[in-house]
Amino acid sequence: MAFFALIGREVRLAWRQGNSSAMAVTFFLVAVTLFPLGIGPELSVLARISAGVIWVAALLSALLTLDRLFQQDFEDGSLDLLALAPMPMELIVLAKSIAHWLTTGLPLVVAAPLLAVLLNMDSGGLGILMLSLAIGTPALSLTGAIGAALTVTVRRGGVLMPLLILPLYVPTLIFGVGAVDAVLNNIVAGPNLLYLGALSLVALALAPFAAAAAIRLALE
């Protein structure tokens, strides 16, 4: 029960503090808009790169809100209080990751079709785009929690964290885009989606332990 209460607290905090969901989605929108401006408005080119651009922008947007995951609680001491609670640190990390996904990953999934239309993606790809993001973004939140936990004591952790985390996002990006491109090219997307799901499950199984170890280290 305390687990869900913690998720609720995190989501409420995210809403209150300058509404990080809205910021992440706005960033997502602006970042994607830059691509046609940089590449040119040719519709066939945009359609070709649409899945990749949207996925890359989603990675960066997820990253944008990750540094708040532990930092604020660490600085005001509430992380110490949470550590004293009977709930194991692994579950605390998991609750925070779920809250991060609810406030960042989910809004990105919802906003993605709009961006797909802007990039002239074939309408047959909209469903699979949302599906692949829905399956893949949990891996981003969970893996990202490791990076956020490792850099929580670092003064300029916001700069360091992307360096640690982005290489780990490579498989998620590849299978996510692979699924969308497969459907757009009339190939079965199944294998890509399965691997994407496997990535999220592996992250779910392992990331809380790694991130909890890092948090305990930071609180020592």
Partner: peptide, 24 residues
């Protein structure tokens, strides 16, 4: 300790990255 945690996370990811890049 922090670097060791990162190294292990990376080590788990190296074969996954290799596989996904080959796939791609």
């Amino acid at each position: 300790k922090a670097a060791a945690i990162l190294a292990l996370v990376g080590a788990i990811n190296v074969p996954i990255i290799k596989f996904s890049v080959d796939w791609w």
